[in-house]
Computed example of a mutant assay.
Amino acid sequence: MQDILENLRTWTDPFAVATVIRTWKSSPRGPGASMAVNATGEAVGSVSGGCVESAVYEVCREVLKTGRPQVVRYGVTDNDAFQVGLTCGGTIELLVRRVDPAEPGQLTDLIAAVDAHRPTALAIVAAAEEKSLVGRHILLVEGEAHGSTEEERLDAAIADAASGVLEYGRNQTVHLGRNGERRPNEVSVFIECFTPAPKMIVFGAIDFAAAVARIGSFLGYHVTVCDARPVFATRARFPDVDELVVRWPHEYLRSVVVDARTVLCVLTHDPKFDIPLLVEALAGRAGYIGVIGSRRTHADRNEALRAEGINEDQLARLSSPIGLDLGGRTPEETAVSIAAEIVARRWGGSGLPLGMLETPIHGHPLRTAAMETS
């Protein structure tokens, strides 16, 4: 719904919204794309680029009238494919529900959170064996949950899942048990994020950087590779990264917004690049700063940074040598090691084999607003 949020600001009466929750093959729009229809018949947004809008419009009118949510699917496999199907050959599944802007945890609260630049996710039950759960939702704003499915353990599991999805800013459907179990498929919850994907900035256009960039994209990061050497920083070497920057690393870092979700991987292994870059990085808010190099290189680098005025608390923020001890050798294995450390740092994991631990595998779920007041 993020794509039409601006259009909905003036809508004060109930309306129906259809949101893409799953896609197959060459569907024209991804999960989160939405179309809304109000009581006067006005429509905003698109779910398919025009292929099935007329059919979805009618479903929205029906849901607005009855108040009962529906899940509908369109694609070339339908009998009426030529009438309402996706001529591109893809298939989309949509959740259509009624929204009352005046209700707590609905449109007004969502817009207020987005305007305040607060990390926000909207989790909606899209399918459930218990049909009364469908359409119920939880709005997660900076870790605080508003709304309820009226199932306390399920609420906690949804809030926990939404928190994880929100960290990477990528819309996703998760499957849970009725009581919040992780593996069962009794409840499907679509989670839409109202925040951009976190940044991963990889400095140093080397083979290891290519592998780290690939796994960063896999994890859901917006990946940038930066190197001052144009002969190395080429699209031929990095065809799939979101951004490729030819610039001195410290100058580039100074020009971008870095927050607590930002990951910096310094793979240049050259003091003339590393020292000014790390001075800049340690003055910022990046949640992870990993630096490649041996222990001897790390010790020498720390001395050079101390000479630049970096204190011991700042030096403690560096993950160097970068990565967890997995025993890997190849660029791809090294990338897995780095990614493992990033994930462990983000969620407070120990990095130890789960078989050695007695703590909960998925940690402790977030407390919802309802739980806090009960």
Rank of each mutant, 00 (worst) to 15 (best):
K199W: 11
E186T: 01
S188L: 01
V84H: 15
T40A: 15
L318P: 09
L264M: 13
A197G: 03
S319G: 00
G67W: 03
T368N: 09
R68E: 15
L324R: 00
A307G: 12
E167D: 12
E333K: 08
T359V: 13
A39V: 10
I342A: 02
D270G: 04
R9H: 04
V336R: 13
E186L: 00
E181W: 04
A33T: 09
T23Q: 11
V266N: 13
A39T: 10
E308Q: 14
R296P: 02
A157V: 02
D207P: 05
R97W: 08
V212P: 09
K199R: 15
G348V: 07
T234G: 12
K131G: 05
A33N: 00
M200N: 08
M1H: 09
Y252Q: 07
P14I: 03
G177C: 07
G328T: 10
C193H: 05
G290D: 07
I138N: 01
Y288K: 11
A210G: 11
V174M: 06
E130V: 15
E372F: 13
R182H: 12
G351S: 05
L133H: 05
L318K: 03
S54R: 13
L267K: 06
G284Q: 13
L5C: 07
A159I: 00
G147S: 08
V246C: 14
L277V: 06
G351A: 07
F203Q: 01
T91M: 14
N185L: 05
E142V: 10
L326E: 02
A210W: 14
R235T: 11
G32T: 11
S27T: 11
E53F: 08
I138G: 02
A370V: 03
D259C: 01
H269G: 03
R317W: 06
P104W: 12
Q172M: 07
E42Y: 08
D13L: 13
D100E: 12
R153V: 00
G135E: 00
V72M: 00
G293P: 14
E186Q: 11
A369T: 14
T19W: 05
A112V: 00
T120Q: 04
S337F: 11
L110K: 04
N38M: 00
D274A: 06
A316W: 04
G323K: 05
A281Y: 10
V263T: 07
L267M: 10
T297I: 05
R98T: 15
C60I: 00
A16E: 04
L315P: 11
A213V: 11
F208E: 15
G284D: 13
I201E: 06
E312T: 10
E130K: 10
W347I: 15
G75H: 12
F218T: 15
K65F: 12
V231D: 11
A39R: 10
G327E: 07
V258S: 05
N302E: 12
E358A: 14
D78F: 01
P101K: 13
R183M: 12
T359K: 08
P353K: 09
V63T: 02
S48K: 04
H298L: 01
G75P: 07
L140R: 09
L139P: 03
F208Q: 11
D78Y: 03
P365C: 06
E144N: 12
F208V: 15
Y168A: 04
A102D: 14
R9S: 10
S148Q: 12
V241K: 06
V291H: 07
T40R: 08
V20N: 00
A55D: 14
N7D: 14
G75T: 06
G169T: 00
G323L: 01
R346N: 01
D155W: 03
E251Q: 14
